[in-house]
Amino acid sequence: MRRAFLARVADMIRNEPDTTYFTVDIGMWAIRDVLRDFPDRCTNVGIYEDGMFSIAAGMARRGLVPTIFGIQPYLIERTLEQIKMDLAYQKLGINVVGTGAAVDYPKYGYSHYCAEDAQIIKMIPGCEFVAPGSAKQFIQLFDQSYRDGHPTFFRVSDHPNVNYDVDVEFGKANVIRTGSKATVIAVSVMLDEVMKVCADKDVTVLYYTTLEPFDHKTLAENCPSGKLLVVEPEYEGTLLYDIHKALSGRPLRIEQVAFPREIFRNYGTYDEKMEHYGLTAEAIRTKLDKLLNEE
């Protein structure tokens, strides 16, 4: 996904003179030619996030289309007031592409983990949050939204779906399959795990890659049972507000497979973390069976 993004950046800078790009000192090698050839519009700004967002907002004020690439917690948490004041409040659009989704730097500790990213951005009106499940989907979603005038945050994952790589549309959920007994919401890179369990069950599977704006309509039209399993690679509860909004007035029974809201003090590998926190096909099966067996 990162490689696809950087190739898109190189193409964008070469061919679209109103675009600009700042990297916070990562991913330079892949775009070394454009860094050299377009120093005014393509810059390694160093370890510099908060003021950089204000600078990018100033450039957007003059009609340019800035894109910033960095590490998710520093792009979203260090810069929170810049996002609120300089982007959302002033209605200025930039693109923010973050690596290190949730626990993609598994050995680095809590400083580098960011399971709260979507929740934080969803709290600031006007911001958009996109979590593609594959490189192809990243390009589709980026191309559909990068000039839309909003602050748009892209979560780039190093662990994409492999078996289910459907075409996606910004702001729209995909109906992967339909069934009657429950609705499973699969978010971003969790689709493969969800389908290991759900491919032969009588359930609806909805696939979300745009988390803000959330597609309430597709959920409202595809939850006949009122039973929901939410499988999301963020802190648990990130989508609950939108689920209740979409299904307002209906009795609901909701289970979740997501990261628990605690500080992670463990290291190891990505797979160990997903296993430890129960973001696995086995945990999905257990919670879905519980949901399906209830009256």
Binding site: D40, S54, I55, A56
Partner: peptide, 20 residues
């Protein structure tokens, strides 16, 4: 309203002016 924002915002405008 929030201090420390206008200066970097102005720098962004000046940088855009140079690019344009």
């Amino acid at each position: 309203g929030s201090l420390g924002h206008g200066m970097p915002f102005a720098v962004g405008i000046a940088n855009a002016n140079k690019i344009k």
